[in-house]
């Protein structure tokens, strides 16, 4: 289950809202950070911390696609292949990730280092092609550049 520090963190989130239910989405992020993904244990821990029904937590967690619904690598690459990015060569980046790292959509590298999610627009059209690596934004990507960036995430 969650450590005292993490429970305290959830308590602090809870204090920002009029009801515990409102703290569910941010609390799920905290649990995801601790458990790696929205596992049954993670959702149970959140339900317990917020005194909410487990089923309700699961319903909410599974509704949102941006939570991790299966175990994933340490670092999450979210690459955009929407119109602007596609025109400026995002497909080449997809191929690059596949050839270099063996990454496919929703896949994880064998060493558990990276996972890839191909995204719809992430609002970086002015710097297309763009990606999010965990919570860091990178634009104007090329094959060399993406290789270099990934090298920085161990």
């Amino acid at each position: 289950m969650l450590s005292e520090t993490v429970l305290k963190e959830i308590e602090e989130i809870k204090a920002k809202y009029p009801s515990a239910r409102s703290a569910l989405l941010p609390a799920l992020y905290v649990a995801q950070r601790e458990f790696g993904w929205q596992s049954e244990k993670a959702m149970q821990a959140v339900a317990q911390a917020l005194n909410l029904p487990e089923a309700e937590v699961r319903g909410t967690a599974t509704f949102y696609s941006m939570y991790k619904h299966k175990p994933m690598g340490r670092h999450l690459i979210q690459l955009c292949t929407n119109v602007s990015c596609m025109i400026l060569g995002a497909e080449r980046l997809v191929d690059f990730l596949k050839n270099r790292y063996g990454l496919t959509q929703n896949g994880t590298t064998a060493d558990g280092r990276f996972s890839l999610v191909i995204m719809e627009c992430i609002g970086g059209c002015d710097m297309a092609p763009a990606m999010l690596l965990n919570t860091d934004f990178y634009g104007d990507l090329t094959e060399e550049k993406i290789g270099e960036i990934l090298g920085g995430y161990k």
Binding site: E40, M43, P53, E54, A55, E56, V57, R58, G59, T62, F63
Partner: peptide, 25 residues
């Protein structure tokens, strides 16, 4: 289950075409 019984054991999981009713487990 939620509003009358108060057990809240059931939920709709996922969304759109994949939505379905499930208990937590």
């Amino acid at each position: 289950c939620k509003d009358v019984q108060g057990a809240s054991a059931l939920t709709i999981v996922e969304r759109g075409g994949k939505s379905r009713m499930e208990p937590f487990s």
